[in-house]
Structures are given as C-alpha cells and as structure tokens.
Design a protein around this nucleic acid. Structure first.
Lengths: 165, 165
DNA sequence: CAGACGCGTTTGCATTTGCAAGCACCGTGA
DNA sequence: TCACGGTGCTTGCAAATGCAAACGCGTCTG
C-alpha cells in the first residue's frame, strides 16, 4: 500500500521536497541532519510528513541543503508563489528599510504612474483583495501621501532636515 | 508613538515589528488576532516577545496585517541571507515605463521615507553600491508631486474615501 | 451606582515540536 | 558465526506552542 500521505498533505509536500533535494545532493539523512543542526530522527519524521517543522528548523534545513529558504517556505505553503511582476515592485517589496505602510504608498504611486502612461499593470497582487477591513486604502497620489502625513507641510512626517552644505 | 530609535536593523524582535505594523494599521490587538486567525492572548505574547510564533502563525499574522509574509520572515531572521533585493533605486532607474519626471518623484518619495526611518545610504545591499543619485531635491514631497500635476486624479474611478468612518 | 463593552494581559492546560536513546536492517571483514 | 560501521525508523520525554477562560483597567450608558 503506497501510503500517499493522505493524513498530512500540507507537510507531506515539504517533506518530499526536502527528501528529494537531499537525494539530489547525494547525502544521507544523518549527514543532512548534522549539517542542518537538527536531530536525525526529527528530520526523518519531517521528510515523511509526520512532523511539521517550525520556520527555524526549516531555515536550518535550507542552510544544510544549500538551497534558498524561500523555496522551502513556498513548498511549505508559507509564502505565496507570486508572479515576478515588475522589477520595481519586486524591489519595493523586498526593501527592508520601508515600513509596510510606506511600501504600499510607494506601490500605489508607482502604479498610478503606470496608469498615467497607459502601461498595463502586470499580474496584480493580493492588494486587490480588499477584505472587510475597517480602513480602506486611499487611492490617488496625494491621498496616499496624506495617509502617511507627509504631504502638505514641508515637514509633515519628515524631519526638517537641514541638508548639509 | 512608535519607537523612533531603530526598528529596521533590529532582527529578532519580531514582536516589536508586528506591534508597530499593527499600530500603523490602526487596529486593535484583538482585531488583528481575529483577522489573522490566532488567539488574542497569544498575539499579545508574541508582540511582547514572550513567545516565538511558528511559521504558520507568522504567515497568518502577515495576512492579517496585509503585509508581505517575507517581510515578517526577514524580521524574524529566517530569510535574511537570501539573495534578497534588487535595489529599489536601481530598479526605478532601469524602468522604461516611467518618465524621467515620474522617476524623480518616486526617488524623492523613497528618499523621504528612508529619512523618516533614519536610514542612511543604501549600504544594506553590498552588491548594489550605486548611490549616484547624490542629493534629492530639498523641496517637499508634495511640491514634487505638484510639479507633475498629479495631485489627485491619476486614477479615475477610485473615490477618495474620507477616512474616519 | 450597576451593567455592558472595549482594550491588553495573565493563567492553566491540551497539543505539538524537537531531541536523546534505542531499534531493525544491510554490507563488509575476520 | 560474530563484530563493526552504515543507512533510516520508532519510542518516550522535556520544552515549547497555541488557545480558552478569566482578570484588571478604562470608557460609555442607563
């Protein structure tokens, strides 16, 4: 009876993926466990879909396999495998120096520009699915800016930085 | 009253990041807990750093906050080493769908955000060392926008919903 | 004043993660 | 035949996650 891992399909996929990657690397289970810093039996259970590894363990396994953590997260269903839209959008989303609010503002402005230029928007993201949220996202360039509180005044949300020199 | 000290380079205090994002979204702890599908007390403990949420919970919180899961993972120190980001500025400059004016607006806004966050030059990405854009315009963000004449109209069909419902 | 509703927090407990120890199996060699 | 080293798998058990219930606090309403 080929047990198709019907009990835990979600973690089953990640386990299969890990095992497959391990086989491709041609290393034993114990070896990967050592490299990843997790115990051998636990890795065995993970590969067979009996356990649901935490993000930390997942990250360590990714390191041990020398593969990207994101690939594992996608397999684990923890990251939506979104389409690679514009480079600018991707870069904005990956930027860690922005708050999420600022990021959304920037994305809104960018898409406004593209609409102005009649550029077809690439695969839209989850932004369009506005759930029953108490605060609807304001649209329009100055609207989103006002949302952040940095539009009207020269130093609304921005420090009156006396630019040097 | 968010901690103005430093929020971005702090890796490990995922709770502070979540709480900060929640405050920015102006929603209560219980509301976020409901939206994220986690219990209120557990979310409270997560925000205060008393518990380490699993990847699944992290993902649900990201969904509840409507921010990218990857941002949370980065904050949790689970993705950090990945090949993370093509620089936002580089992507903006490489974008052929923007006019030069629009590009400059985006860059200025991006710079304003970074100043808000007290982020220095884009030194986080070691490979992208192109800070050729020297000094941004000292005028306010709205001034730059007004110069483009895109104060509120670029996207028709979207109503400037008055917040404060 | 009592009662209801909101907030964030604390407490006790079921469930789970993740590991140390041990199991069964296979190939090699004396 | 045993002993040695290798593979992966199963078994208890400490520690942690994650939640339901309840608490204290402030505010609004009668």
């Amino acid at each position: 009876m080929q047990t198709k891992a019907m009990e835990l399909p979600k973690v089953g996929s990640i386990g299969e993926y890990i095992r497959d990657q391990r086989k491709q690397a041609k290393i034993s289970l114990r070896q990967l466990a050592t490299q990843a810093g997790v115990s051998n039996p636990y890795l065995s259970q993970i590969e067979r879909g009996l356990r649901k590894p935490s993000a930390e363990i997942l990250n360590q396994i990714a390191k041990g396999l020398r593969i990207s953590s994101q690939a594992l997260y996608v397999q684990a269903g923890l990251i939506e495998d979104r389409e690679p839209d514009s480079d600018v959008l991707a870069a904005m989303r990956a930027d860690r120096t922005l708050t999420e609010r600022q990021r959304q503002v920037l994305i809104d402005i960018y898409e406004s520009f593209r609409k102005e230029n009649h550029v077809e928007a690439p695969a839209e993201t989850e932004r369009t699915s506005q759930n029953a949220w108490s605060e609807p996202e304001p649209q329009g360039v100055d609207a989103v800016l006002a949302e952040e509180g940095l539009t009207s005044s020269p130093n609304g949300g921005i420090k009156p930085e006396p630019k040097e020199g």
